[in-house]
Design a protein around this nucleic acid. Structure first.
Length: 597
DNA sequence: AACTTGCTAAACATGG
DNA sequence: ACCATGTTTAGCAAGT
């Protein structure tokens, strides 16, 4: 009732699952974030009180029992008390983590003057009709701008462009900028609406201590205006910002879920211990913010070390408004929903690295499913490794190390990893004398294709010969490097092989006659395989070593389908496959080609 | 509605 | 026989 625009978990989920947020949704999100801020403060205070109260009650209980002379139960109570305190601690940690995260992401700045604000005044001021209109305009500008980008430079470096905040990818669109100045400047627009949420004309939630607090930015500015300029230029409404926003949403939501879980547990414990809960259940009492002193103090402390390189660790105690969602969210909803949901980063696979890194700490500690596909994560794991290669077990370990979520249900996600490794073209297994490891073909990863089995799909494209090669994934999917190459070399070779599937053009292969001849051998082998017809059902046995003398490149199977591209593969095609052509033709182009044939 | 994609489970093979 | 590793298939859900 007092937070009419708080969206339900389902709605949230829906939004989260969408690939791109609409500006309206973003707006709602922003509003919600603001509301969160306040409610967090309130709830934090409440928790503090509650904690003290619980302590008192527990002490009383203990004393009573002591009076009764029951020594056993005294021990019991102590243990219970301990567990209870731990639980409280846990809840607090979740809260702290939440606030920390928000602050690190630059999405939460608790201004001392804000703490006492009534919620509605803030939220009301956020949604004037004109703002809606502005959003629309911004959206239009955004669409145009996006269009332009797609037309020219999207193919260049796009793999790392995505969220590379350090790169000055300035959208030079006057129209956009013009409107963007309203985009980031919601506060100046609603000046007459409410003065409260705008303590000073030169403040912005994303601006603190001369630093831009946009996630991962931390650019320093002398004055507020240059910051605003920066904000509008660098963090305008574009794909990147949207993606970051989505991640942040996810983070917030999962934290909320986590907190809900812990609160539930706490409630159960309290019930069990016969402690009367003072927690507001259905109707959360707007707590008076007597304690805003503490809070603003901690907030102040927290915001100052923002210039620290990575993760400010100042603990503060946020809370999320669970009151509205409480009834819907159950303890298991987090895990029952998550596995089925679609990971939204899959569309642009590559920008996950910055996202992962930004939220590393979070995912390491919070039992939250990372919003990335298995393929993305596996790739990340492999690419993070010094040699760009990992054994299966090392991949497992990376998952468990990096994500608290993957410390459970091992059978499930391990199986998923194996399936993904097998299924994705981009993952290439390499064998050496010590065993086998996996590498990533990043180009193929960007293509995002699966190995085709059974009825091949339509994409025997003209895109290149490599497509044909990889139509029979095994041709490059399994390579034995039992020759003298070190793992690095073999990985480099592997990568180059996989990169175009034709090693002629990769830097690794150029100037490497050995690899060159190796590639040649592969092609010969391929033709041989073609001559034998397709795999005739029975998969080829691994023992069959097709390149005996040469380099132990084993082709495990040839799901090459005659339907797809009959006729022997001409290596002339290979020659036509120029590196320029291949140069990061990404999605749009790719799909275009795919649809062609 | 058809197709694609990602996740999951399961069956199966292989090698240690 | 058991386990780890891989491969393959099928079914489901969700997105295009």
């Amino acid at each position: 009732m007092m937070t009419p625009q708080v969206i339900t978990p389902q709605q949230m989920q829906q939004i989260l699952q969408q690939q791109v947020l609409s500006p309206q949704q973003l707006q709602v999100l922003l509003q919600q974030q603001q509301a969160l801020m306040l409610q967090q403060q309130q709830l934090q205070e409440f928790y503090k009180k509650q904690q003290e109260q619980l302590h008192l009650q527990l002490l009383q209980q203990q004393q009573q029992q002591q009076h009764a002379g029951s020594k056993q139960s005294k021990e019991q109570v102590s243990a219970q008390q301990l567990a209870f305190q731990q639980q409280l601690l846990q809840v607090q940690q979740v809260q702290q983590q939440h606030l920390l995260n928000l602050q690190r992401q630059g999405l939460l700045t608790i201004q001392p003057g804000q703490t006492g604000l009534p919620l509605h005044s803030l939220t009301q001021g956020m949604i004037p009709a004109e703002l809606q209109q502005l959003w629309k305009e911004v959206t239009n500008a955004h669409v145009k701008e996006e269009h332009n980008n797609n037309n020219n430079s999207s193919s260049n470096n796009n793999g790392h462009r995505g969220l590379d905040l350090s790169s000055p990818a300035t959208p030079k669109n006057p129209l956009l900028n013009q409107h963007a100045s309203t985009n980031g400047q919601y506060m100046s627009h609603k000046r007459e609406g409410s003065t409260l949420e705008e303590p000073s004309p030169n403040s912005h939630p994303l601006y603190g201590h001369g630093v831009c607090k946009w996630p991962g930015c931390e650019a320093v500015f002398d004055d507020f205006h240059s910051f605003l300029k920066h904000l509008n230029n660098e963090h305008a409404l574009d794909d990147r910002s949207t993606a970051q926003c989505r991640v942040q949403m996810q983070v917030v939501q999962q934290l909320e879920l986590q907190l809900a879980k812990d609160k539930e547990r706490l409630q159960a414990m309290m019930t069990h211990l016969h402690v009367k809960s003072t927690e507001p259940k259905a109707t959360p009492q707007p707590l008076n913010l007597v304690s805003s002193v503490t809070l603003s103090k901690s907030a102040h402390e927290a915001s100052s070390p923002l210039s620290l390189p990575q993760t400010p660790t100042t603990p503060t105690t946020p809370l999320t408004p669970l009151s509205q969602t409480h009834s819907v969210i159950t303890a298991n909803s987090l895990h029952s929903v998550a596995p089925r949901r679609r990971f939204f980063s899959e569309k642009y696979n590559m920008p996950i690295s910055p996202d992962i890194n930004q939220n590393k700490d979070f995912y390491m500690n919070a039992d939250v499913r990372p919003p990335f596909t298995y393929a993305s994560l596996i790739r990340q794991a492999i690419l993070e490794s010094p040699e760009k290669q990992l054994t299966l077990n090392e991949i497992y370990n990376w998952f468990t190390r990096m994500f608290a979520y993957f410390r459970r249900n091992a059978a499930t996600w391990k199986g998923a990893i194996r399936t993904n490794l097998s299924l994705h073209k981009c993952f290439v297994r390499v064998e050496d004398e010590f065993g086998s490891f996996w590498t990533v073909d990043d180009e193929e990863f960007k293509r995002g294709r699966h190995i085709q089995r059974g009825r091949p799909r339509k994409y025997a494209t003209d895109e290149s010969f490599d497509e044909l090669l990889v139509q029979s994934p095994a041709l490059v999917k399994n390579i034995q490097t039992s020759l003298g190459y070190g793992p690095t070399l073999s990985a480099a070779f592997q990568a180059s092989m996989a990169e175009n599937n034709i090693p002629l053009y990769t830097t690794a292969s150029i100037g490497s006659p050995t690899l060159h001849s190796l590639a040649h051998a592969i092609r010969e082998e391929m033709n041989g395989a073609m001559d034998h017809g397709n795999s005739n059902g029975s998969d080829s046995s691994p023992g069959r070593s097709p390149l005996p003398a040469m380099h132990h490149i084993s082709v495990k199977e040839e799901p090459l389908d005659p339907d797809d591209h009959e006729g022997p593969l001409s290596l002339v095609t290979t020659a036509n496959h120029s590196p320029d052509f291949d140069h990061h033709r990404d999605y749009d182009d790719d799909q275009g080609h795919d649809d062609m044939l």
